[in-house]
Simulated assay, not measured.
Amino acid sequence: MQLPKLGKLLILKAAEVWGNEPQIFTPWLSQNLELLSEALQIEELELKGTEVSAGDFRLDILAEDGEGFPVIIENQFGATDHKHLGQLISYVASLKNRATVVWVAERFKEDHRAAIDWLNSSTSEDYDFFAVEVEALKIGDSDPAPYFNVVAKPNNWARNVRAVSRQTSTGELASRHHMRISYWASFAEYLRAKNSKFQIRRQNKDHWFEFPIGRSGIVISSTITTKGRIGVELYLHKDPLKAGIRQLKADKTAIEQEFGEALDWQELLGKKASRIAVFKTDSDPSDENSYSELHDWMLDRMERFQRVFGQRVKQLNLELSDTSEDNVDPEDII
């Protein structure tokens, strides 16, 4: 038997590869954010700027996630220090909306890793904190490959459970909201475990959750109801004249063949929106024992919608569409 010939894996410090953090690594990372987003399991990161002024200091990189919320990235070669931790906390304290904080360093001291865990467990669920160690790997004479190792990250399931407990004690939530929060928290962990491009990174008490598909105003929306039904749909928020759905419907036969099953084409006359949906009936999203089956079905249909409609929605002519906000609650039309 011929045994395989294997190379020796070499681990290089970041400073050995990039040399200088502010002058080389930060510009390099700003141009390769997809590598970081893959490690963090964040669907998309869009660069907004480097060396961005933030009071008395500057942020190395400011980006946005797929939902338009800020992602603050601070880089550091060598071991972590209190200065960088303090800067990140100071900046987050000035924010009014959701944000993600990413601290990238060659090596995290245990007390700083513990501080990130504490921030994730103690702060609002609107803020996510990541600690990421960066190094490079190579085999023999190969070019070095960047490697991001996430050593601390938010536990959204635990945070959602705490949020539910807090709101339960104050009587703020109806029973349907408890069911929704529990289901979406479970689905969020399921997506993470599957390394899915779809991510849920906040508590949600609505019966729907929207995921970007690559064009503003159009989303993949997953839904659950207490009526024994779950669904996935392509939701066009601003389609009052139904131009979008009718352009897609002209290719209905090919679309449904690619999708693998019949779809429900709803123009929603009198509404600003339209949608193309598929439903699973006889489902009980309040039954935790059924989560696995429902999650499998939901993710499968979400991936089909992305595959079948991802390019098609980018080609739609929506010039006649209304640009005002669609304030219709989808529950009114389910």
Rank of each mutant, 00 (worst) to 15 (best):
Q266W: 15
E74H: 00
L236Y: 10
S274Y: 06
A174T: 11
E46H: 14
E256V: 02
P212K: 11
D322P: 04
L268D: 08
P285T: 11
E210P: 10
Q306W: 07
R201P: 02
V164E: 14
I230V: 12
K153L: 03
V17S: 02
A114L: 01
K242M: 03
N20W: 13
E46L: 11
K242L: 04
R192D: 11
V132K: 03
A273L: 01
F259H: 07
D284G: 04
I116W: 00
Q31Y: 03
I73K: 03
H295K: 04
A152N: 02
G68I: 10
A131V: 05
M1Y: 06
I89T: 01
T26A: 08
R107F: 05
L316N: 14
W157I: 15
E288F: 03
L268G: 12
D251H: 09
N75C: 13
L320E: 10
Q87E: 05
Q247N: 09
R229T: 10
T168L: 12
V92R: 00
P27T: 15
V313L: 00
P330D: 05
D329Y: 08
P330L: 01
D322A: 04
A99N: 05
R229I: 08
E67Q: 03
Y235A: 07
P154S: 15
G270M: 01
T26C: 14
H177Y: 00
H207W: 14
W28T: 05
S175Y: 13
L3P: 11
E133Q: 06
H237S: 10
L6M: 11
E319M: 13
N327Y: 09
L268P: 10
R201T: 05
H84C: 08
S175R: 12
S165E: 15
T100S: 01
G78D: 02
T170H: 09
P212M: 04
D282G: 05
E135N: 13
I224L: 05
E258L: 08
I334Y: 15
S175A: 10
V278S: 04
H177S: 14
E233M: 04
A131P: 04
K205R: 09
T253Y: 09
E172I: 12
E303N: 10
K314Y: 04
T80W: 00
R58M: 00
L62V: 10
E172Q: 07
V232L: 07
N156I: 15
